[in-house]
Each structure stands twice: as structure tokens, then as C-alpha cells.
Nucleic acid binder design. Sequence first.
RNA 1: GCUCCAGUGGCGGAAUCGGUAGACGCGUUGGACUUAAAAUCCAAUUGGGCGUAUAACCCAGUGCCAGUUCAAGUCUGGCCUGGAGCACCA
Length: 828
Amino acid sequence: MKENYFPQEIEKKWQNVWEETKAFKTPDESDKPKYYALSMFPYPSGKLHMGHVRNYTITDVIARFKKANGFNVLHPIGWDSFGLPAENAAMQHNADPETWTDENIAYMTKQLKMLGLSYDWDREVTTCKPDYYKWTQWLFLQLYKKGLVYKKEAAVNWCDKCGTVLANEQVIDGKCWRCDSVVEKKYLSQWFIKITDYADVLLEDLDKLPGWGENVKTMQANWIGKSKGAIFKFPVIDAPNGEKMEVPVYTTRPDTVFGITYLVVAPEYKDIEKLTTAENQQAVEEYRANARKMTEIERLSTERVKTGVPLGTHCKNPFNGEIFPLWTADYALVEYGTGAVMAVPTHDTRDYDFAKKYNLPMKVVIEDPQNPSDCSKEAYTEPGVLVNSGEFSGMSNEKAKGAITQWAVDKGFGEFKTQYRLRDWLISRQRYWGAPIPVVYCDKCGIQPVPEDQLPVMLPKDVDFKVVGKSPITTSKTFKDTVCPVCGGHAVRETDTMDTFVCSSWYYLRYSDAKNSEKCFDKDKVNHWLPVDQYVGGIEHAILHLLYSRFFTKALRDCGLLDFDEPFKNLLTQGMVLKDGSKMSKSKGNTVDPDEIFENYGADTARLFILSDSPPARDFDWSDAGVEGCYKFLNRVWRLISTNANNINLNYQLNFPLQKDNDDLVRVVHMSIKGITNDISNDFQFNTVISKYRELTNAIYDWQAKKKDLSDEDKNVLSFAIVSLIKLMSPVAVHLTEEAWHELGGEGSIHNQPWCEWDENLAKSSSITLVVQVNGKVKDKIEVDEALDQDALKEVALESPKIKALTEGKLIVKVIVVPKKLVNIVVK
RNA sequence: GCUCCAGUGGCGGAAUCGGUAGACGCGUUGGACUUAAAAUCCAAUUGGGCGUAUAACCCAGUGCCAGUUCAAGUCUGGCCUGGAGCACCA
């Protein structure tokens, strides 16, 4: 064995061996239990960044740990390879997005292999390839058949300079992330997926996910935004055309209906023109036109100064017969509820602001009897008792919510209503580099889905990427014109492509049967491998990807394609990788290139370091000194092994009873095995795992420093310690340990060795330190025999000279004894 | 504004059940080895009492204020600060 550690040499060597032997191929059939470890697959942007390194290392260590513990582990990787950057690169360099993507995938694949990740490369999926997007299109058609896909006119984020809609996540502070121009709202006919049909079950099933962080679950719950309330219909008494009209409103505060003093409809409210008098027509029209022009930025910059204009008409409050005016104001949102709001200025802060500004009347209907509120300064939104509320006066407001709604239900103008904030998912994009939406528009038959046997609808190659103001796909001469599958007449293909989040909503299912050309996946295989046992990725997907994937799983279950409710059993959201306290970014110039780390220190150092300093869920601050320290540690481990290579026997036998110092080292090894195993099992605390590697290494060095010559027994103990260290480190320092294993004469790969076992009786020190406190403060520590009972411990503590001195002349009130640990003497 | 998370030395962080606060590392300081350096090794490193060797001791200390308890970084209540997400959702 070489005396010095040369990571570059040994890493390359073993990477080649693993690749040639397909060392990490996962069989579908196995008598072992399955374990599915998954990292969020990367977008092939060009190069790996440290966030990738962290993500994939965490999952890799989990996969290897589970494999060593007797699981048949599925650990795949793929590419989320559709999306804007490829198309932008194509526009700038006039390259084909596919070529650009392929080159990036090739480079990043090389980097992943350099990191020593244990992927089953035979299951690789690439979403931009026809063998994958064929099935994305097929799944779209299944959802279409189920009635979960529809097309409608909607306001979308539009970047005029780029000539395309943008996803919400591509709008940063109201501006296009690419060209920085202001994003407008534009009405376009778009494709939607009816995720709202699943709002309730998506919310409820969060309770089935104890393995998810509370933060992610509350973010999803807030996003879904369930609220319970009522819908009331208010009759209009003076509609200009004499029509009998009513305005329905949604409210979560039915208890405040006696305090309504006006009603607001959104500027986009569908019946607004019919509700406006001739005198007010012009002012309302101007207000609406202005609202339409408002960009996101302007809406934000108004800082919630509320504006509005009266419509001139009035409603009657069916609860008390009062008449109140109708207004329009943009603080009412057309997409939420009914698009109309009943305003109770005394008990809603927004209504209060508006009423103050326009001098609208206010009426107190809820009070805290102990502490009557002054509603002339601010709205009172706390619980209380109803006043000025007819027969409901005196009732607690919580109780009144139900009672008042029920009253309205009985009289026929109200209903109980549950409302969600979640909106349907807009999936169409006017871009080239995505999966084409598989529908055609027939002159006679209208919208028709492409028959399944005609899939995939391939992306055309004859396109001009330099075109401005429209999707490059529309420049194809071969793509658009086609034949209607129903009547055989002329039809035009849909030129919109799907949001890349559609592609990434089912990739984890495809890994179970990645190469199937007949189906999206085999039902038995997907049911066998899923759900994912451990999913690892960034918190930035807390809502989008994770919500869409949960929806997809449920929808596909309802299509009969699989049999489980939730795709990801456990979720680990890793923190960001920082440098000097801020996020690594090219513009800040504080990035660290993984290639340089591999070259200078090797992948094992990179893996060790990225796990070492912080627990996985927290942000990780990259430091050059830290990398250096990890590199030194691996050198230290290497030296320990190489200088002892001749003394290490893989078939060591521990012959008890051991001598004291040997016994101590053996105990440290057992403690290390136990501690490391528990740390990985409980929340993947890799930072403490690595501390324990260091402690064990230090202990072996210390033990050795005391020895002059090694007896046979010593050699057995040393072998036990070092072999255990290598095995414990094998999930992290994958190359170093493999090399050491072979140099020591090990058969096969260390990565096929079973995990170390520990003896509970040896995983603790031979004596215990009794802590003696006086009035809860530590005053002495005494080495005692483990066998001593409570009375004996008490005696030992009281006998201690230090304790005697401290308790002398004082009254001992109480003595608390915690077995094997502590004695607390309470004195006065 | 609402929701969630976090707050421990110079720094990253550790501390199953409430039971020795600061494991492990980074950095710093001192020392050994060396012609010298690198590498390596040894020692010290929460603050103060205490600008001196050695050994020891005492006090304070986990964002702040209370509380529960023999005992609180850990539990309860109320704040403060920082971060993240949502944001006129009626």
C-alpha cells in the first residue's frame, strides 16, 4: 500500500471499475426489502454547482447506508431537460437546443461520475427525449379524458420583448428574469390542469406525511388556502335596466352581516356594466380601464392605498332590510370567491381603510363585553358578542357564524361554502423547447386529442430560433398542418408546449421502469418501487414541484395507473450552499467550481466536507479552510491504514477478556458504530457522523501511541478498529475505503459489505462518572462502579470530601439520585 | 399583516428522556521536529475574578423577561432579533 494518499489516481481507477462492472445496477427482483432513494433531478444547465454536489452526496450516502443494511436500493438519476435556457442559448448562438442540452448532459454526467455517485445508469431518464415525452403527452391525454385538462381564456404573465408568456416563477419582482422588462397581464387562451379538483385531498393528505418537514407542509397548506364561510345573495333594488338582479358574495364572517354598509365588486366583475347607472358609467369605465392597464409592479407599488368608484346602484340587506350602495374597487379580486365582497368596515381592516377614505358609514355589530372597542380608530377583528344584530344580538360571534348562515339557508338566499386559494395550473407555454401539447384544431370538429398511436408528437427541426415576438415552433413549415383524426379533414396542430413542471411531475415514476417502450411504466413495478422512501432536494420546490407531483400521483391513481396516494414518503429539504455568508452566484463572483475541488483534493474530500459542517437541512457555508481540513483528515486516515497495513488482518478474532487499554479501544469502536448508525438513522445527521469518524480515528492513534510492540491480541484489536473505521466511512469516502479494502486483501467491493454491528454492552464505557450536584450545581465528579445501587450512590456522593465541606453545618433537605448518572443534594 | 423556521465561544456546530453546556472541526496562540519551509505531532483556547509559574478554586454564562422543577440550551407563557414563504384570498 502506498504511503501517501493520491486521490486523483485511486478515484479514477475505481470509477472505471464501477462503471465497467455496473456495480450499482439495481435488480427489480430481489429477496431483500426495497428502498428508493431519490435526489431531485437536475436541469442540465452546463456544469454542476455546489448545491448539486450537496444534494447528490446526501442521497448517495443514504443509498449506500441502506444498501449495506440489507436493502435492495433504487438510486436513479435523470435530466429535467426541457426549458427556457436551452432555447435562449439557441437564440443567442443559433445552436439547436437539443445539441446544447446533449452537450451539457454529457459534461454533467462526467462530473456526476467523478463524484463517485452510486447511480443505476441503466435507468437514466431525459425528459426532452421522445422516448420520455411521448409518455408525458400520453399522460396529458389520460388527464384530458378524465376531464382534468381544459382550455380557457386567462390573464397570464406576458413579456412583450421575448414575445412569450412566462411562468410565475420566471417573473422576478414583476420583471422578466431574462430581459428585465416589465411583465404585463395579457388575456390569452391557455391550457389548464384542474388541480383545484384535488385541493381538499391535497390538503388533507398532508397529515399522511409525518416524514415531511412542518415548514413544507404549512407552505403547501397556505398555498391551498382552505377557508370556510358562506355565500349570501344580495338583491339589487335599482338595476338601471329594471332587471331583477342579485349579487352573491363569499364571506368568512357571516357573523358580521348586520354591519354591512356597502358592497364591492371587482373591476373585472362580469355583471358590472349592468350594475352601473348611466351617470356613473363614465367614471366606472375609466376606473376599469385603469385597473386593466396596471402591471404587477404598479399594483405592488400602490402599497395598498385602496381606490374605487361607486356604481350608483344599491342592494338590500335581507337580514335587516337596510339599503347600501355598490362600489367597484380593485381590492376585490375577480378570481377569488364570487368576485364580490360584502363590506363591514368596523370588523375588517381593508373595509375600514376604504370606508375611511370615502367617508362611508360604519356600524359596530361585535363587541367584547369586558372591553368595548372604539371602532372609530381601527377595525375590531377579535372575537366578541353580537350587538345591533336583531335576534342574534347577545350571541357569541363564533356561534353566530353558523346560526346566521343557517338562517339564510332556510330563507333561500345563502349557503355554506368552502373556498380555496389554489388556482388551476396553467401548463401551456408559447415556447419551442418543451413537450408539444398533443391536440389538433379541426376546422369542422374543433379541438381533438391526438390519437395515442400517433404519439409522440415530435418537435419539428425546421424552425427559426431567431424569430422575435412568437414561438420558434410556429415558424416550422412541416409542423402545423395536419389531418383531423375524426373527419380526416384539414386540422392545425397546437403549437404551445407544456410547462416543464409537467415533465418533472412524473419522472420519479418512470425510474421504476425507465426503458419501457410499450407503457409509461408497468403497474406492478411502479407499485413495487414507489413511494419514494427518501426524497432529497431544495426547499425552493416546497410548493411547485412537490405539489404538482402529489397531484399527479393522485390523478394517475384515479386513472388506474398506480395504487398509492402519495409519491414521497419522506422528504429532506437541504439548505443552501453559501460562500462568505451569501448565496453562491456568478454575479457575486463567489462560486466554487466542483471541478477544481475534484482536481485539487478529490471527490472524497468534497463529499466529506459538504456533509461535515452543518446538518443537511441548514444552510452550509463553504470555506476553503474547511476543505483543506477535510483533506488533511483523509490523509490522516490513509496514513493510519497504510502504516499499519502489515498488522491488519481482515479475519481478526477478538479474544476476551481484553486488557484494559485494548478493552477501551474496543469500546470506542462499538460506541462509534452505534453512534454513527443512529446519527444516520435519525434525520441523517451527517455532521455528527463525521465528528465520530474523527473521534474514532483519534482514539486509534492515541491507543497506538501507547504501544511499543504489538502483541497478537493488539493486532486483532487494531484490525477490528481499522476495518470498522473503513466500513463506517465507506458511504462517504467511497474511493479511499474501496482502495484500502483491496490493499488489505478484501474480496469484492467494500460497497457490498454488510454494515458493522455493535454490542450494546460494549457500546459504553466500563466505568461511569457520577455527577454530584449541590442545589443543582455541579460540585464533584466521581468514578464509580456501574453496579452500585441508588443508596450506594447516595453514600458515595455524601462521602466525597468536597461535598462534605460544602454541606457541613447545613441541613440536607433532599437527595435526588438518578441511577448511573447523578446525585443532587438539596441543602438549606 | 399572516404562517413557518432559527437564535449556544472568534466561526461552523454538538448536547436521545429536563440531569457534566461548548463534542468534533475551523481559526488563533504557544511549543516540538527542520538549516529553513511544507507536512506532521503536542498543548492551550466561553468570559471574568487573575497582564506572573504551577496547581486549584470561585462567579457569570445557551437572544430578553417571567414561570414550572431538586435540576432548564431543552418544558410553559410573554417579548426581541434574523431568515424564509404568502401577501388586498373577503
